[in-house]
């Protein structure tokens, strides 16, 4: 290839990009690199940094549950996200797309939770789930299901599923809107043709709608996973990671290691490892997309 001389004008065009690039470099790229470098040091935030090599990676990956346990919890949130949450989003989008009575109304309603912040959602649900005065338990006792009136957020077995449920409530609207948009992009003629061939609702869904939606389903699923792996606000407000670490998630753990235990080097190590996992998930998505296109 011939080396091309850049015209003065063209180099001046860099001015369009540079402001964004400088901001981005200072607040994203520079911390990213520095974050990586700090992982090799043990540091309490005040005294000298001490070089420890891969010690902290070893500790996070093999010796303590500080990394894998939160990842497992976040993976549970993610799994609930891609199955229950996206399934629900898809079901509701599919029904609303049929343009029954009141479809517009439901479209507005289902997108309300994504408008709310996780702090607000956390408080709203915390109040409903309150062990003694919460409406859920009062209601359960009232209909004779008193044995189900649990301290939902206080028990080790129920805390994580409960938070997962709230997370589903909070986020299924995103998937709903995206699926609905994709559904509305499908030509009506295809359905008509299927009807004439005698397909029922469910055949129609599995044979036509689902395959056509596969690309967007993978996109939304990946976004759901990435969102769940980075969850922090909801956990912070609802359980603070408790009881006994049952709802500990990675970002939460990083926050604790740094700001409460003063182990800054270790906290950044956890951050890098989380980053690696997110990166792998994204790569995986690209691969799946490629397969879908080929197929």
């Amino acid at each position: 290839m011939l080396k091309r001389q850049w015209k003065h004008r063209e180099i001046m065009y860099l001015f369009f990009v540079l402001p964004a690039l400088i901001f981005f470099g200072v607040f994203v790229i520079y911390p990213f690199i520095k974050n990586f470098l700090i992982t090799f040091y043990s540091w309490d935030g005040i005294n000298e940094m001490k070089f420890v090599g891969l010690e902290q990676y070893k500790k996070a990956l093999f010796q303590s549950p500080d990394f894998w346990k939160p990842i497992k919890n976040a993976a549970f949130l993610a799994l609930m996200g891609i199955t229950v949450q996206n399934g629900l989003a898809l079901l509701l989008a599919w029904i609303v797309d049929k343009e029954l009575k009141g479809a517009r109304f439901y479209r507005v309603i289902f997108f309300i939770p994504p408008m709310l912040s996780f702090v607000v959602i956390g408080f709203l649900w915390k109040w409903i789930l309150e062990p003694n005065q919460g409406i859920l338990n009062i209601f359960l006792k009232n209909i004779g299901l008193g044995k189900w009136a649990l301290a939902w957020l206080g028990l080790r077995e129920t805390a994580l599923p409960t938070v997962a449920m709230v997370n589903i409530w909070a986020s299924f609207g995103w998937g709903f809107v995206m699926f609905l948009a994709a559904l509305q992009g499908i030509e009506r003629d295809i359905y008509e043709a299927a009807r004439i061939d005698g397909a029922n609702n469910f055949q129609e869904f599995w044979k036509i709608t689902f395959p056509l939606l596969l690309p967007i389903i993978t996109s939304v699923s990946i976004l759901t996973i990435l969102g769940a792996m980075q969850q922090f606000d909801l956990i912070y407000v609802m359980t603070g990671g408790g009881p006994a670490g049952a709802t500990e998630v990675p970002v939460n753990q990083m926050y604790m290691q740094a700001f409460q235990n003063g182990m800054w080097g270790y906290a950044t190590t956890l951050g890098v490892l989380l980053g690696v996992i997110l990166f792998l998930i994204s790569i995986f998505q690209l691969q799946i997309k490629k397969w879908l296109v080929d197929w």
Partner: peptide
């Protein structure tokens, strides 16, 4: 950068 979201580096941003 879409792959290195802020929650993974927020500690270094704090230090910065």
């Amino acid at each position: 950068s879409l792959v290195m979201p802020l929650p993974t580096i927020f500690i270094t941003v704090y230090l910065l």
